[in-house]
């Protein structure tokens, strides 16, 4: 059980919201999607995923709905709300500014 790649602090919400941009997903789907999109580089710990989802629900950035999966199992699907889309835009901007700033520092060194 090798060491997992830790996410940058504060980026989990951003990743979840991004994943949900395309289509509603259940918790497992979100974890899987992040893993695949990052070419297995990022692993979201379930211990952080579910608390984060509750937090996003509470903020009103995502909404949840119980639906049937392709395999005919009941699962809770999360979807982005209008407020969530706005928040995503905000977080992406902030993230890019942050990365750019860090890049500048690293180059300068």
């Amino acid at each position: 059980m090798g060491r997992k790649k830790e996410l940058l602090p504060g980026t989990l919400d951003l990743l979840i919201l991004t994943t949900l941009m395309r289509s509603p997903l259940h918790g497992y789907g979100i974890a899987l999607s992040i893993k695949r999109l990052s070419d297995d580089f990022l692993t979201v710990e379930e211990g952080s995923l579910y608390p984060a989802l509750q937090r996003l629900l509470l903020q009103g950035w995502v909404k949840a709905e119980w639906k049937m999966t392709d395999t005919n199992r009941r699962a809770r699907f999360y979807a982005l709300t209008a407020a969530g889309k706005k928040q995503l835009g905000l977080e992406v901007t902030q993230y890019e500014q942050m990365i750019a700033a860090i890049g500048r520092v690293l180059k300068g060194a």
Binding site: H26, E46, L58, Q59, G60, R74, R76
Partner: peptide
């Protein structure tokens, strides 16, 4: 808005717990 959502969750506390369990169970099964 957040407060009201919190209150709603407070009253559906048992459902919240069950749903969470079910959701995580589903995750493990997958």
């Amino acid at each position: 808005g957040k407060f009201f959502r919190k209150v709603r969750m407070l009253f559906g506390r048992e459902r919240f717990g069950n749903e969470l369990t079910e959701e995580m169970e589903f995750h493990r099964e997958q």
